[in-house]
């Protein structure tokens, strides 16, 4: 019985490799360089929820039915975030990074892997509070069109607002979060003026290239799903995209220590994983 289980694990590993290859060949979504352990977990969820017995069966369905791909991407990409998740990070952006950004007449900020928009709205609100919004262009990118659409709607369940509000206050918020949304039918609808300076775009850190020169890139809890090689690609892309001495913010438990580009950045606020491009 144990041996059967171990055999089954090996078969699953083969099936997953083939499934990812098929997803890429057929639809150009590239998950081949994703960290295996959590990817496997999410693929198992997808297989079970779609009522399919094996990954091979999932592959067969996916190849012939594009509607399945949308659902599969939902399992593989959608992450739950919060406004001002990790308030200490946003406090450090506000107190340590913003003073540098003020010295530029115009700014570009890239929220890479913007998912359903929580991080984006946090930045726009923070920049409005700091009087920088008018000179800033925000790029929100993701590989999932569904996530981008959700981000562009900016509607969140009302029961999440309490946590958002608490985070905003802890981040050093200078206004009331309720200034930025109205409520209707149990939902909080964020003001559309928050999107005046935002460009939403389909962009993959895995397969796409540099598209503008940024002063600040925030990419939090996105690269944790990549293997080390793919992380290197993404960090290299960020380095190329940043202006001289531009800033890169990562998630609380992400680090450039294990990256081949570790030397290309210096720690700007070490405990909040905010880095600065190293330039002479």
């Amino acid at each position: 019985m144990e041996n059967d289980r171990i055999q089954e694990e090996k078969i699953e590993d083969i099936e997953i490799r083939l499934l990812l290859e098929a997803l890429y060949s057929r639809y150009h979504y590239d998950f081949r360089g994703y960290a295996q352990a959590s990817l496997k977990r999410r693929l198992r969820q997808a297989r079970d929820q779609l009522g399919l017995p094996t990954f091979s069966a999932l592959q067969d369905r996916m190849l012939r039915d594009p509607a399945i791909v949308t659902r599969l991407l939902g399992f593989l990409t959608v992450q739950v975030s919060e406004l001002f998740r990790d308030p200490a990070y946003f406090r450090a952006i506000r107190e340590k990074v913003v003073p540098h950004l003020r010295t530029y007449p115009s700014l570009k900020v890239w929220i890479a892997g913007s998912s359903t928009g929580e991080e984006l709205y946090s930045f726009v609100i923070l920049f409005r509070e700091e009087g920088l919004e008018d000179r800033t262009l925000f790029y929100a990118t993701d590989i999932s069109q569904e996530a981008l659409d959700a981000a562009a709607r900016g509607i969140y369940p009302l029961d999440r607002i309490r946590a958002f509000t608490e985070n905003h206050q802890l981040s050093g918020g200078k206004s009331s979060l309720s200034d930025y949304y109205s409520t209707a039918y149990g939902r909080a609808v964020f003001d559309k003026s928050l999107r005046d300076r935002v460009v939403f775009s389909d962009h993959s850190l895995v397969t796409d290239a540099v598209f503008a020169e940024m002063h600040l890139i925030s990419c939090r809890n996105v690269m944790i799903y990549f293997d080390r090689e793919l992380q290197d690609r993404a960090v290299g892309l960020f380095r190329e995209s940043l202006a001289r001495k531009g800033f890169l913010g990562l998630g609380a438990r992400e680090s450039l220590r294990f990256s081949q580009y570790a030397g290309a950045f210096s720690a700007f606020v070490r405990e909040e994983k905010i880095y600065q491009r190293r330039d002479p």
């Binding site: 959590s38 809890n221 799903y225």
Partner: peptide, 29 residues
Amino acid sequence: LVEADRTISLSVEGPVQFSRPSIDVLFES
């Protein structure tokens, strides 16, 4: 989670058994 190469990987996907971190997720990987 633990990868096959014995490095740690982290994830912010939804809670499992109402928990994040979840014991099931670590143990299974």
